[in-house]
Simulated assay, not measured.
Amino acid sequence: MSKKHKSTNKKQANSLIYTVKEETELLPFLLESMSNRSRNSVKSILTRGQVTVDDHIETKHNYSLSAGQTVTILKNKAAVKESALIGMSILHEDEDIIVINKEAGLLSIATEKEKKQTAHHQLMEYVRREDPQNRIFVVHRLDKDTSGVMMFAKSEKAKRTLQDAWKENVKERTYVALVEGEVAKEKGYVSSWIKESKTHLMYSSPTRNDGQHAITHYQVIRSNKDFSLLDVQLETGRKNQIRVHMQDLGNPVVGDKKYGSKQNIIRRLGLHAKVLAFTHPTTGELLRFEAKVPKSFLVKSK
């Protein structure tokens, strides 16, 4: 099958962009699109997280592609003078902080299985190019499959200032959630005491004061009988809080099999950190950053 029938190709400085013309799997699509590269080279690009399908990083060789999807291939690091950050872009940087827009599929910090392909590791390498003594400090986290605005500190002092008074420092923390079904109330909140099971599953305890108190406010942006798109505000920041509370509502986050989702029409987790506004740890200035809602969230909610 010739390349011209399968995809169209656009070039940007640091990436190749293809539009899928017909159903196929990701690895065969890449092999045909990058026919000048060896099979092992293409597999490496895929494994390193340099391939994005629509709005999420995809590493599965057999990932099913449909006509109309966009596949973006970030060129080899050497080809972009080692300046490319895979799976994220910098929204703001100063002497004390770095704010990024993280794609779904990128880990915030290292795990036992993955040490390097994380936002933290990449930013550490990024700041050390200027000075080998530079470091990056984790202030808060986003789940691997959640996209959106995330902040890191560039000094221990800035990290402590932000974390010690996190609730006072953070003025707005808004997420957008695509959930299953039609949410009964147009506006409301969920309040519960969240605990972690022995299998590392977070859940709302039926007993008051048993666990960490968590409060999530939500408002319906748009909905139909199948899906609702919600504006979600966090009053507290507990692990998996939104995911647990949407399950409690009876409207689990799309693609969140762990917390009750039965389908994944967008083929990623339907959770995006849209806005983060906070007081700068040194200047005291109020900063606000926003990451656009992924297109796939809008397409599937009418």
Rank of each mutant, 00 (worst) to 15 (best):
N240W: 02
T207I: 07
N224V: 08
K257D: 03
K239G: 00
K225R: 07
K257S: 10
L229Y: 04
Y218N: 05
V244F: 02
Y218W: 06
S261V: 04
D231L: 02
Q212A: 15
L229M: 11
R238D: 00
K225D: 10
D231A: 09
K258N: 11
T236K: 07
D248T: 14
V220R: 10
R243C: 14
I266D: 05
Q212V: 08
T236V: 14
L249F: 07
V254I: 13
D226G: 08
G237V: 01
H217G: 04
H245T: 14
N209I: 05
A214P: 04
L229T: 02
R208D: 11
R222Q: 07
K262S: 13
Q241W: 00
D226P: 01
G211N: 15
G255F: 02
D256W: 03
V232Q: 02
K257Q: 00
L249N: 10
F227G: 01
I215C: 03
D256H: 03
G237A: 02
V253I: 10
D248Y: 05
D210E: 14
H217S: 11
G211T: 11
S261I: 06
K239W: 05
Q233D: 09
H217R: 12
I266Y: 02
T236C: 12
M246K: 13
I265D: 14
V232C: 12
N264T: 11
I215R: 04
P252Q: 05
V254A: 02
A214K: 05
T207N: 10
Q247N: 15
T207L: 10
V253L: 04
N209D: 15
D226S: 04
N240K: 03
R238F: 03
R222Y: 09
Q241H: 05
I242E: 03
R243H: 08
R208I: 15
N224Y: 02
R238L: 01
N251I: 13
I266C: 05
K239A: 11
T216C: 11
F227I: 00
I221H: 06
K257G: 10
N240C: 03
R243E: 04
Q233F: 03
A214N: 04
R222L: 08
I215G: 15
R208Y: 14
